[in-house]
Simulated scan of single mutants.
Amino acid sequence: MKMDNIEDDKSQVLDVTRQLTQLMIDMNTVVMNKFLDTHFTLTHITGYVQSKAEWFDEIESEQMKYYSFKEVKISVKIEEDKATFVGQNLLDARIWGTRNNWRLQQTMQLEKLNGKWIILKSVATTF
Rank of each mutant, 00 (worst) to 15 (best):
Q12H: 10
L91M: 15
W55M: 13
G47N: 04
T125Y: 00
T43L: 03
L14C: 11
D92S: 09
H39P: 00
T107L: 04
Q88C: 04
F127W: 11
K82D: 09
T107A: 08
K116S: 13
N33G: 06
W102M: 06
Q50P: 03
V123Q: 11
N5G: 05
M27F: 03
V86T: 14
E79N: 13
T43R: 03
M64K: 11
N5V: 13
M27H: 11
F69D: 07
F35M: 14
L113P: 00
N114G: 06
E80V: 03
K121N: 14
Q19C: 04
S11A: 10
M3C: 05
L91A: 09
I74R: 08
I45L: 11
T84Q: 13
S51M: 06
K116Q: 15
N101G: 02
K2F: 07
N5S: 12
Q63E: 14
M64R: 05
L104K: 03
T46D: 15
M108V: 00
Y66S: 08
L120H: 02
E62L: 14
V86G: 01
K82E: 10
Q19R: 13
E71K: 07
T46A: 07
N89R: 09
D15R: 11
G97P: 01
W55N: 07
G87C: 04
L20S: 07
T125I: 07
T46M: 08
L23A: 04
T126Q: 10
S68G: 15
Q105R: 12
V86N: 10
Q19A: 09
K82A: 07
A83C: 02
T43F: 03
S61E: 13
G97W: 02
D37T: 02
W102K: 00
N89T: 10
D26M: 06
F40I: 06
M64H: 12
M108S: 15
K65Q: 13
F35S: 08
L104C: 08
I59Y: 02
N100A: 10
D57A: 13
L91F: 04
Q109E: 15
I78W: 02
F69P: 03
K65A: 12
K73D: 14
Q106R: 07
I119P: 00
D37R: 06
V31W: 04
D81L: 03
I118L: 09
L36Y: 04
L42R: 03
F127P: 11
S75G: 14
N114W: 00
T21V: 08
Q19F: 01
I118H: 01
M3Q: 14
G97C: 02
